[in-house]
Amino acid sequence: MKSINGKVIWITGASSGIGEALAYELDKKNCKLILSSRKEELLQQVKNNCSHPKNVRILPLDVTNFEAMPQKGREAISFFGHVDVLINNAGISQRSLIMETDFEVYQKLMDVDYLGTVAVTKAILPHFVERKSGHIATVSSLMGMFSSPYRSGYCGAKHALHGFFDSLRMEHEKDGIAVTMVLPGFIATDVAKNALKGDGSAQNKDDDATKNGMPVSELAQKLIKAIEKKKMESYIGRKEILAIYIKRFFPKLLHKIILKSQVR
């Protein structure tokens, strides 16, 4: 894809954070947007904030309602007659020790971050195969490549995404379908505030690393470039992305660095 200008883009998790920022950046490129999340009122606000609201459709969606997903896929296609790009962005994080985390919290993290993403992808995949064209960009995390204390369930779900989408890429390259895994580092969003504690309630507080992270608009711009370049993986952040390479060549060193940093 040389340019994303004018393409039809379906974004999940579009009511805030990375998804909202993507909507504004793609709106500048005259893209036709399908915005999804559970929060219809916030989606309407995002639409109204776009310069070309006539090119924006709202599709309320709970990614954990797996049975409804095939119909949601058909609705997404019906808005503009086709979809060019799916951006899987819906997700939730976690901040709790394994010993203090209810099993139900792990189930929710897998349902939202992994199975929900798989369900949305499967809903649009036959359309992409039929058209012999399509691009799936999935927002993972650096935590999808290595792990950290307090994030066991989140890391597990993000690791699972890589296994699934690496397989999808191999199976459907022949169908003209591209897959880009996007691995953000610390981005200035509410991800830490919304992160689940061990009992399933929201943490409701920010952390310094997230608060001082890359501006979300900058992340959105880099993510769009990664899609245009059809990158297989894109690491987006500041110095924290070096951890990818430390993990690859010096895993024991990264283990010590993370334990010493006590990032929560």
Rank of each mutant, 00 (worst) to 15 (best):
M1T: 13
K2Y: 15
K7L: 07
V8Y: 06
V8D: 08
G13M: 06
G19R: 06
G19E: 03
E25F: 00
D27F: 00
K28F: 08
K28W: 10
C31I: 02
C31Y: 07
K32P: 04
L33P: 03
L33E: 04
L35P: 10
S36W: 01
L42E: 10
L43N: 10
Q44Y: 05
Q44I: 02
N49T: 10
C50G: 12
S51C: 12
P53F: 03
K54D: 14
P60Y: 12
T64M: 11
N65L: 04
N65G: 01
N65E: 08
P70L: 03
P70K: 04
P70R: 06
Q71A: 13
Q71K: 15
R74N: 12
I77C: 06
F80Y: 11
G81Q: 10
D84W: 07
L86N: 09
A90S: 01
A90K: 01
A90T: 01
I92A: 01
Q94N: 15
M99A: 15
T101C: 02
F103P: 15
E104Q: 15
D111A: 15
D113H: 13
L115R: 11
A119H: 03
A119Y: 02
A119L: 04
V120K: 02
F128A: 02
F128W: 06
K132I: 03
K132D: 13
S140T: 05
L142P: 02
M143C: 14
M143G: 14
M145E: 12
M145L: 13
Y150I: 11
R151V: 10
G156V: 01
A157T: 11
K158F: 14
H162I: 09
H162G: 07
F164A: 03
F164C: 03
D166S: 10
R169K: 07
H172D: 08
K174G: 09
K174A: 12
D175N: 14
M181L: 04
M181C: 02
A188F: 12
T189A: 11
D190C: 11
K193R: 11
L196S: 02
K197T: 02
G198N: 00
G200M: 00
A202D: 12
A202I: 05
K205R: 09
K205F: 09
T210S: 11
N212F: 10
G213N: 13
P215T: 09
L219I: 13
A220Y: 03
K222S: 03
L223S: 00
K225I: 01
I227Q: 08
I227F: 03
K231Y: 08
E233I: 13
G237T: 08
G237W: 01
L242F: 04
R248E: 12
F250L: 09
F250P: 07
F250G: 05
P251I: 09
K252V: 08
H255M: 08
H255C: 07
L259I: 02
